[in-house]
Every structure is written in structure tokens, then in C-alpha cells.
Design a protein around this nucleic acid. Structure first.
Lengths: 207, 207
DNA sequence: GTCTATATATCGATAGAC
DNA sequence: GTCTATCGATATATAGAC
């Protein structure tokens, strides 16, 4: 009946399960360390299905990455020219830390991709991400021009915010070990967000 | 003549070359993505030599990691109770950023190990590193008690300093792409160190 | 100690039955 | 569309000549 157009509900469910499983396995093992057998097992489907749906391991990996990049850029929506700098930056930090807490696997897949030469997302970095940072940096510069913020190299400010917020997902094991815990607790993310925000507020020029 | 005690000079030279090559290959490919053939080729030795010297790929990897961890903990020597907080933190940031610039491969190997469950350095994280942070945090707390620094969760402060300084090694490709460069320039590291230091100085209590 | 040539294992991918 | 059984490629590790 269905002439191969819209995928059946079972296939759609399976694809979603596979993508979720793949994100977890790619996060903990990296691309080359990930085993398609492990992904299939975790998703609860036969390994052949995975290849039938996605073709190759690399295509599946790209799909996982695309899902992540889609969310990424929208986390900075609070940074607008008419917003209050302190509030906007605090909201951005909260959004980024929240993403690290809710989707640590996504952050790790992205980190791993970057770490190993970004073979799949070169274009994204040079196009979409660069444009995003260029635009947001103009907002920061405008705040500086208005005397709301001390002069600051805007792009580096974003690099540091990314680093500080993502470290709680990417290097959670190190943080947990140093804190003497088995894993990071919700309160730790709050402490982190508060401290990061405090550091950034130091750039604010008092009225 | 030599009854197998001290290794000959050629062997020592080869081991050094292999370790250097291994650090580079592990950094760009991760443990599972690294090929022993690639390491041997880059080191200029036959692949069988590599196994003769180190036994297995995993042992070689551990040796690379040990070399890195050895340097790590000494970078914080400026953080002492009798030091000036602002100067000590600035020196620590400079040391960490300098390490990221001089030995980006080392930083990436470490990041990759952390990212993927830290199977080889669990003990290091829970023992040496935890003790280091516990000790340095007491220094920070003492500065706070003396009214030199605003109250701050000391351990999180270290997590953030690590994140900010290492991001310029680990995610250099992202930074270069956003800056519209092929690679990060020396001036970028200076800009980074200056901004990180400024953020931290914001914690200083004015005299 | 060094190196070439090869064994053994693992994993991504697919053929073919249902 | 789904799944079992298997192929072929690739990579670690080693045997054995020099």
C-alpha cells in the first residue's frame, strides 16, 4: 500500500532508538571505538537492521552529529542587542550548563569530533558557527559601545563560556573524581553556573 | 657485553621517537583510532620494533599518558599560601595556556582519555589529582579567610581554569575556524590568557 | 637486537532465507 | 521489511630468519 514514501511507525521507532543508542555509544567510545554491534544491541535491534536503515556506520554517525548541531545554535537566543548584558549572559550560561546536564552524551560526541580533526563538521564550523559567533560578537561590541560592558574580545569570551559550561559534561569523570563522588550531582551544576556567571558579571561596568 | 641492564643508546633514542610519535597519533586519532603502523611509520622504525619495545599498543598508550601526568601537577607551583592571589592565579593561567600552546598533543590525549571513561587514569584522578586539588583549595580558602579573595567554591574554580586554558589545545580547530584562521596564532593564546586572568581578577577583593 | 613475512582476531558490511 | 549466517577487509601481534 504505502509505496515506500512515508516510513512505517515501526521503522521510525527503530530509527529513533538506534540514534539514541548510537549517541551513547559514540560518546563513550568515540567513532572508531564504537561497535555497530554494541549500538544495535543497546537499541534492541539486529545489527543488519542498522545497516539497512542507515547504510554505513559513518552515515549513522553523521546523523547523530546533525541532531546535535541543530540544537546547539539556538541556546544563545538570549543574547540580543536590547537585552541586559548580565541577564543575557546568565541566561546563556544557564542554557549551556543545562544542556550539559541533560544531554552529556551529545556534548561528548561533539567534543570527540572536534578533538580528532572535525572531519565531519568542518563546514559547520566555518559557516554556520562562524556566522553565529560573528553576529553575537556584534551584540557584545554594541554593549561595550553603550558602556554597559568593559571592553572585551568578544569571540574569546564565547570560547571561554563554551569551555566552562561544556567541561561539566565532557570531563564529568574528572570533576566527580576530584569532588570525591561517583557522579556529578545537580547541585554541582548549580554551583558551576553560579560561579561562571559571577566571573562574567565581573565584566559589567557599574552604573 | 652489556647484560641487558641499561638500554643501549639506539634503543633509548628509538623509544623516545616512538613515544613522541605515539603522542601525536593518539592525539589525532584516539586510542582505538590510532594504528600502530602509523606510529611506527612516523617514528621511522619497523612496526615489529614497537611491539618489541613496548609489548602491546595499550602499554605504549599508558606510557604516553604517564609522561603527560608527570608534568601536569607541577604547573600549579605558583599557588602557595604566601603568594599574592592575583599574581599566583595569573602565573597558573600563563603556565596552563603555555602548556596548551607548546604541547597540544599531550592535552588532547588526556582529554580523549577523560572523554571515554578514563579507563587508564581512574586511580590518578581519585588519588594524586584529588589530593592536589584538596591541597590547592586550602590555599584558596586561606586567601578568602584573609580577605584577599571573595568567597568562592575553590574546586570549581580549578575546574573552570582547566576548562578555559585547555580548550585552546583540545578544541583548537573550532577556535581557528571561528576566528577565520587556518590555525591558532601565538597572539590568540596571549589574548586568551589575558581575558582568563581578567575574569579571575574580578574575584579579588579591592584593598 | 632488528626486521620481514605471516598468523589470528575482530568488525563492518552483505547475501539470501523468510 | 526483517533477520541469521557469513564474507572480506583490516589491524594487532608474533614467529622465525638474519
Amino acid at each position: 500500500m504505502r509505496r515506500g514514501r512515508a516510513p512505517g511507525p515501526k521503522r521510525q521507532q527503530n530509527e529513533t532508538r538506534i540514534l539514541k543508542a548510537a549517541e551513547e555509544v559514540f560518546a563513550t567510545a568515540g567513532f572508531s571505538g564504537a561497535r555497530t554491534a554494541a549500538i544495535a544491541k543497546r537499541a534492541g535491534v539486529p545489527k543488519a537492521n542498522l545497516h539497512y536503515y542507515f547504510g554505513t556506520k559513518e552515515v549513522l554517525y553523521r546523523r547523530v552529529l546533525e541532531n546535535i548541531l541543530e540544537v546547539w545554535l539556538h541556546l544563545g537566543d538570549s543574547i540580543r542587542p536590547d537585552a541586559d548584558p548580565a541577564q543575557a549572559l546568565a541566561a546563556y550560561v544557564a542554557a549551556k550548563i543545562g544542556f550539559s546536564r541533560r544531554r552529556p552524551h551529545a556534548s561528548k560526541v561533539f567534543a570527540n569530533e572536534l578533538l580528532h580533526g572535525a572531519p565531519q563538521i568542518r563546514g559547520y564550523l566555518r559557516q554556520e558557527l562562524k556566522r553565529w559567533v560573528d553576529a553575537k560578537s556584534k551584540v557584545i561590541d554594541a554593549w561595550v559601545a553603550q558602556g554597559l560592558l568593559a571592553p572585551v574580545p568578544a569571540k574569546h569570551l564565547f570560547f571561554l563560556i563554551w569551555a566552562m559550561t561544556q567541561t561539566y559534561a565532557d570531563f564529568d569523570l574528572q570533576i566527580a573524581a576530584v569532588l570525591g563522588r561517583k557522579r556529578i550531582a545537580p547541585a554541582d551544576y548549580q554551583d558551576a553556573a553560579a560561579l561562571i556567571t559571577r566571573l562574567l558579571i565581573g565584566l559589567k561596568v557599574p552604573p
